[in-house]
Amino acid sequence: MTISMAARNPEDEMGHARPSDEELMATIVEGQESALEALYDRYGGQSYSLALRILGDREAAEEVVQDAFVAVWRRAETYDPHSGRLYSWLLRITRNRAIDELRRRGISARHPSVGGRSLDSEPDPAQDREVPEAATSAELRSVVGAALDGLPHDQREVLEMAYMRGWSQREISRHTGVPLGTVKTRTRLALKKLRRALEPLRKEPVDLDGV
């Protein structure tokens, strides 16, 4: 199965075709700072949201986002579109940097929930405002969120611990006391069900701009 999420190439408010991720990356390779800016506009919010969810710390999340975009900027020539989509690459860098920071701080006791909020800041409408989203990116969130919600709790939990805390299956087993074989089975079943649930993404390209 190949999940197809080819970014659409819609038009901007002036009627000009917006560059695809690949075109954007080619411009970044040429050293156009405006392309990096466009990349940030497209994926900065998603990168920040992910880092914030993993770290639960705004300042640290901002550092991670800066690191991730600078890494993309400086290593743009090494990006191979055949090896994965641009947003996957960027978010993988974001996630790995955030996990590195989590490990550096020794924050292993946190139990971030993919769907919940764990920020300890003063509630402020200005700070906690939702990011305005294109309908299509909201749709993507909706599909992925529903797919995860559809998993049994124990299966969802192993995925969250692996992705959001950076625990290997062996570490999950050690921390939770669940036998390693069971952790493997839950992971395998969770991924299988998610693939099936995410099938709609194959049918229609998703515009990820502005996520």
Binding site: S49, R141, L148
Partner: peptide, 19 residues
């Protein structure tokens, strides 16, 4: 296939506005 599914995990995170 495993990578494609795991790479979608960030989209299950609620959107937060960066400063």
């Amino acid at each position: 296939e495993v990578a494609e599914v795991l790479d979608l995990m960030p989209f299950a995170v609620p959107a937060s506005a960066p400063p």
